[in-house]
Design a protein around this nucleic acid. Structure first.
Lengths: 205, 205
DNA sequence: GTACAATTCAAACGAACGTATGAAAGAGGC
DNA sequence: GCCTCTTTCATACGTTCGTTTGAATTGTAC
C-alpha cells in the first residue's frame, strides 16, 4: 500500500471539502489539516488557493469529458436522441461524491469556470451540438444553443441539489439510485429538446 | 422626493451587491459604504449579516410568489400547460436585475434557502403541482415531483447564468429580451413535462 | 559521506471580516 | 426649556483568512 503523495492528498481533501462546504467557506487550513500536511504545502505545490481550485476542477472534469466523448463515439449513427443525452448526463452523475463542486464553481467563481469551459468543455460541447442537431433537423443553431443551455441547467441543478433534495424530500440519499435519476433526466431533457421551437430570434453563440 | 430610510437603503444596496458579487464575497462594509450608512447600522436594524440576507431575500420572494399565484388564479381552468408554466416563470424573470441572488442563495446557503422555501415557496409549489397534475393525468406524484425539480433547475440556472451567458455568447445583455427567453423556457419546460414517464419508482416529497 | 535539490515545517505577516460598545446626535411629546 | 426614545457615529475587539519566510528535514546522485 503506497502512501499517497502530499500533493495528491491535498487534491483529495480539497475536492471533498470544497464540494461539501463551498469555495469561500473552505479554508486552506481546513484542507491541509484534513490532508495531514502543513499549511504552506498548498502554496508550495500549487501557487495559490485559486490554482488549487483549478487543479481540483481540472482533475475532475478531464476524465468526465473523455468518458463523454468515448460514449458518444461508441454510439451508432442512428441512435435515438435519448442515447445522446445519456452520453452527456451519465459521466456527470458518475463523478463520485463531489458533484456539487461543479455547481459551486459555476455560481461562486464564474471566472474560473469559464477558464475550464474554454479548455475542457467547449470542444465536447460542439460534438454534442452536432449530435443533437442531426437528430433535430427543425432546430436552428440559436434555438439549439439555448436548449443546450437548458440541459446544462438541468444537470448542474440536479448535481447541486442533493442537500436541498435531502432537506425537502427527507430521503437521506436522494441521488443514490443513479440510473433512476439518469432516466428521469434523459426523459425530461429529450422532451424539452423535441418541443416545438419558438418563433423569436435571439443571437447566441 | 422623500429620502429613503437607512434601513431601506441598506436593503437596496445589499440586494444589488449580494446578487452581483456573492454572499460571502460581499462584506458588510461594501454594503454600508454603498448605502452611505454607518457600518454599525446593519447590526442595529438587522441583527446580523444572515438576518440581513434573509430580509433581502424575503423582500424579493414575497411579491414574486404573490404575483405567481395571482397569475395562476386568473388562468381559465382549461388553459394549456404552457400558460401554467408562464405563470411560474414570468415573475421570476421579472425580478429586476437581482435574479442571480436566488441562485447564489440556493448553492451558497441552502440552510437559509430552506427557511425561505418553507415559509414562502412551499405553499405556492403545491398550487402549481395541482395545476400541472390536472393537465398531465398520466403522471404520478413522484414523477411530477422530480419534473418540478427540473423546472426549478431550468429557472435558477437561467437566472444565474447571465454572467456566464455574457462570457460565452458575447452578448452584453443576453437576458434583456425577457419575453423571448420566457418563450424558450416555457417551450422547453412543457416538452419536458409532457415526456413519456420513466418506469422506475422513486420516493419523493 | 558529502553536496545539492526538493520538500516539510513552525511561525508570523498584514489584511479583512462580523460584531460589539459607548458616546454623540436627532426626533417628538410635554 | 427638558426628558426620553430612537438612530447614527467613530472606534475597537477578537478571529480568521491567504500568503510568506527562513530554517529544518528528507531524498538522491556521486
Amino acid at each position: 500500500m503506497k502512501e499517497a503523495s502530499a500533493k495528491d492528498r491535498i487534491l483529495d481533501s480539497a475536492e471533498l471539502l470544497l464540494a461539501e462546504r463551498g469555495l469561500d467557506a473552505t479554508s486552506l487550513r481546513d484542507i491541509t489539516s484534513s490532508a495531514s500536511v502543513n499549511l504552506a504545502a498548498v502554496n508550495y505545490h500549487f501557487r495559490s488557493k485559486d490554482e488549487l481550485i483549478l487543479a481540483v476542477f481540472t482533475r475532475l472534469v478531464e476524465p468526465m469529458t473523455a468518458r463523454r466523448l468515448a460514449l458518444l463515439d461508441a454510439l451508432p449513427g442512428d441512435a435515438p436522441l435519448e442515447d445522446v443525452l445519456t452520453c452527456l448526463f451519465r459521466p456527470a452523475l458518475e463523478m463520485a461524491k463531489h458533484k456539487a463542486l461543479v455547481a459551486r464553481m459555476y455560481v461562486e467563481r464564474p471566472d474560473l469556470f469559464q477558464r475550464i469551459f474554454e479548455t475542457h468543455l467547449r470542444p465536447s460541447a460542439h460534438r454534442f451540438a452536432a449530435a443533437f442537431s442531426q437528430r433535430l433537423p427543425g432546430l436552428g443553431a440559436t434555438e439549439l444553443g439555448w436548449r443546450m443551455h437548458f440541459l446544462v441547467g438541468l444537470m448542474i441543478h440536479t448535481l447541486a441539489a442533493e442537500p436541498i433534495l435531502r432537506a425537502i424530500s427527507g430521503d437521506p440519499a436522494p441521488l443514490e439510485n443513479m440510473d433512476a435519476v439518469l432516466a428521469k433526466l434523459v426523459a425530461f431533457g429529450a422532451g424539452g429538446l423535441r418541443a416545438q421551437p419558438t418563433l423569436g430570434e435571439e443571437p447566441y453563440a
